[in-house]
Design a protein around this nucleic acid. Structure first.
Length: 577
DNA sequence: AGTCAAGGCCAG
DNA sequence: CTGGCCTTGACT
């Protein structure tokens, strides 16, 4: 039996964001099989109790904390020995701790390196369609000694760290290999490379002690938390396809390609995450009917003009990882609603926004101009622009990737995807649509998008920036590049650049209203606490007007840690907190 | 033939 | 129900 058959649980005509089970339910063999336990209706936020709260994010998916680059998906611990790893053999790679319980890893199981017991637990849960109940707040701490206490939270953590439902075989066939084989191989290779790079980074650091210019996270007390396993989701629709043959990240396809058909709907990226994909079409975004990135015959750049796109803009476009954005969105919606009767949609929206924020920080800190700034400056810029960029990202996903307004969750609930772009304010929908129409008229394309995003981020007017010159240089460089791009590639659109620039304050106005709304709901106790999202909301409202939170070791904010984190491939293991 | 990630078995 | 160990079988 193929993986398609194993996992063919979804309606064939299901939309890419339709996460609800197919006609047969969430399992392969019909409805739940006589489990005695029942789900406890949701109410509590995804928070941690005081006993396990070693730091602010103790019970959020720890892999959010230290994103290690685009494509990261599952979670795992790096070696937490505290010692610098001087060897880079495979043995070290495998000597990790289970991302679920911290026990010794026995190999790759269901998508990532886990211990034998969590492997067995995950298998039994999925095979037998167990439904667990948490008698506490559904935020139990899971470690080696306590993993048996709360199967609900243990399973939730399995999903959170990235264990894959689709790797459990519906037909129970033994032996053989599945589609993750090549992925595991790549992951091993990547880990080995990371080890080597970390070694180099450590050596570099040793040679630069006392050099205050290094912005590294070695002093962080958080480095022993799990770090995302760098497993790329195979871009395949069946067991028989090779992930290696999958298309690369969204790169040049996003650039104007007037003489070619628009990029095909990216089915794969949806199937990749869904245990329920049944057909290649099941997870395609709607083909962008009014794809602004597919220029019309009158206004688009010609192929000759495309060649004139500056290398910098090409590079900018390459920083976009829409697939990661979509995969993580889908993965979160999937994991948050698996085995759930009903979820709080506002809370879910906050979690998605929170995840988007982590991606955003990860994107920013790897980009030119920004990555050379000191952490404090980086934080100020992000705190100033995060909501604007969230709105812009959503416009981009809608316009260039056909993101629908709504999706059906696993549990049958409808989730308004559009609310992500509106930051939870339905009343802004008209404004949002007007903005989108305006951009569509301007043939707003992917290079435009990424340039505007840089302009939002690199705002030299932000108060308190130390290295204003660097920010301004970056801003002006992007501005010039965008002007050049619009003149070269869209000569028929009168003053496209100027009109794009006028959109920025509109985005800001929209985002500000959203922020205000989120803040009020947060104050009313309706939003999950201890999230990066809430940290961002609070930052602007601090009496010192966006000054950094106290950055002493005992009071380090999440954003601080994210910005101060090492380059993704040079992570220094630390002793536990 | 060896590898290794699936599923299965069964004592505790 | 758990988790350590065993069996299986596609892939190398």
């Amino acid at each position: 039996m193929t993986m398609d058959q194993q996992t063919g649980l979804m309606s064939l005509n299901m939309s890419p964001f339709d996460l609800s089970p197919g006609p047969e339910g969430s399992g392969s063999g019909g409805g739940p099989s006589g489990t005695s336990q029942q789900y406890v209706p949701q109410g509590a936020a995804y928070q941690c109790g005081p006993e396990q709260q070693s730091f602010g994010y103790a019970n959020l998916d720890p892999s959010y904390l230290f994103p290690t680059g685009a494509g990261g998906e599952a979670g795992a611990y790096l070696p937490a020995t505290g010692a610098v790893c001087d060897q880079t053999d495979t043995k070290d790679v495998i000597e990790e701790l289970c991302p679920v319980c911290g026990d010794k890893v026995s190999g790759y199981h269901y998508g990532l390196l886990t211990c034998e017991s969590c492997k067995g637990f995950f298998k039994r849960t999925v095979q037998n369609k167990k439904v667990y109940t948490c008698v506490a707040e559904r935020a139990c701490h899971i470690d080696k000694t306590q993993r048996k206490r709360c199967p609900f939270c243990r399973f939730q953590k399995c999903l959170d760290v990235g264990m894959k439902l689709e790797a459990v075989r519906a037909d129970r066939m033994r032996g053989g290999r599945n589609k993750f084989g090549p992925m595991y191989k790549r992951d091993r290779a990547r880990k080995l490379q990371m080890m080597r790079q970390r070694q180099i980074a450590v050596q570099t650091l040793r040679g630069s002690i006392g050099d205050g210019s290094l912005v590294l996270g070695f002093g962080s007390p958080y480095a022993s938390v799990p770090v995302k396993q760098e497993i790329q989701i195979p871009q395949v629709s069946s067991l028989t396809s090779s992930p290696e043959s999958s298309p690369g990240p969204v790169l040049l396809a996003a650039q104007p390609q007037p003489q070619q058909p628009p990029p095909p709907p990216a089915h794969d990226k949806w199937e990749a995450h869904s245990p329920h994909s049944a057909s290649p079409d099941a997870f395609a975004f709607d083909a962008p009917a009014t794809n602004a990135a597919t220029p019309s015959s009158t206004a688009e750049p010609t192929s000759t003009e495309t060649l004139r796109v500056s290398p910098m803009i090409r590079e900018f476009v390459q920083t976009i990882d829409d697939r990661e954005w979509q995969n993580s969105l889908f993965g979160l919606l999937q994991s948050q609603t698996y085995n759930q009767c009903e979820v709080d949609l506002f809370e879910l929206m906050c979690k998605v926004l929170d995840q988007n924020l982590f991606s955003q920080v990860d994107w920013a800190r790897n980009t030119v101009f920004f990555k050379y700034l000191k952490v404090d400056d980086q934080m100020k810029l992000l705190q100033n622009s995060w909501s604007d960029m969230l709105v812009l990202d959503h416009l981009h996903q809608r316009m260039h990737n056909g993101l629908p307004d709504e999706t059906t969750l696993h549990n049958g609930q409808k989730f308004d995807l559009i609310c992500l772009g509106l930051l939870g304010v339905p009343a802004l929908a008209d404004h949002f649509n007007e903005l989108q129409n305006k951009l569509a008229e301007l043939k707003f394309d992917v290079p435009d998008y990424i340039c505007v995003k840089f302009l939002l981020l690199l705002n030299p007017e932000v108060r308190g920036i130390v290295n204003v010159k660097c920010v301004r240089d970056g801003y002006q460089t992007v501005q010039a590049a965008l002007l050049d791009y619009t003149l070269t590639c869209y000569p028929n659109i009168q003053d496209k650049f100027g009109k794009l620039v006028t959109v920025v304050p509109e985005i800001h106005a929209l985002a500000s209203r959203g922020e205000e709304h989120l803040y009020q709901r947060h104050c009313a106790g309706q939003a999950p606490t201890q999230t990066l999202l809430m940290e961002m909301l609070h930052a602007k409202r601090k009496p010192n007007g966006g000054e950094m939170v106290n950055r002493s070791a005992e009071h380090t904010s999440t954003l601080d840690r994210l910005c101060g984190f090492l380059p993704s491939d040079a992570i220094e293991p630390h002793s536990p907190i």
